[in-house]
Design a protein around this nucleic acid. Structure first.
Lengths: 105, 105
DNA sequence: CAGGATCCGACCCGATACTG
DNA sequence: CAGTATCGGGTCGGATCCTG
């Protein structure tokens, strides 16, 4: 066999990124810092609830940094951390696979 | 901006591979054809129900081929199709990310 | 051996209403 | 603007029992 018990780490990764929106969110954040409302507009179909929850989860995992600007009205920016940038290959490969999926009959 | 509407394909991919077990299953199938019971033993914690459902989903997507041997008792083998092999980079990158996740404090 | 059928709890996710 | 609170439906996923 080539690798047997190796699959466990896949499960760990999917537990964090396996949701419907998280990786998609990350793909947008790769373009640079984004405001909450900006993500809401850009990500088609996401509810404001899920946006909050998923951003929070990524923040708790140390992959996204949340910056609050004490202005009126409030402005909040989300950006990938150094660690968060490590998801770039994941997004790239998933994007490629998704494109291929759609290109099939 | 570098890429704006590109994220849609990520959602497509996650809709297919986003479950808890699917990508993990694929990672085992990359080693070669596996029998049902073999996967059940190898994949720690999966129920026979989810194993069936997820294999069926991958089969319906044309990524896994199911072969029934008319023996007694029955023997069923699952293997990745040509198309299914396209998930190899996805598994690889997700495995790497998962390992890195676990290696952090 | 490889599943199908059924039941049931947990969680994902969306819609809506309200707030600092 | 950027959330929080609450409700409810749908899906995910496990346990158990049954079958070709």
């Amino acid at each position: 066999m080539k690798s047997s018990v190796s699959g466990c780490s896949v499960e760990e990764a999917m537990r964090l990124l396996g949701g419907r929106w998280r990786l998609l969110l990350v793909s947008y954040l790769l373009d640079g810092p984004k405001r909450f409302g900006e993500l809401r507009k850009d990500v088609p179909g996401i509810s404001q609830r899920m946006l909050t929850l998923d951003l929070r989860a990524l923040e708790d995992a140390g992959l996204v940094r949340r910056t609050v600007f004490a202005e009126v009205p409030v402005k909040v920016e989300y950006q990938l951390t150094e660690d968060g940038l490590r998801m770039e290959p994941v997004v790239a490969v998933m994007k490629a696979f998704g494109l291929w999926l759609k290109s099939r009959a």
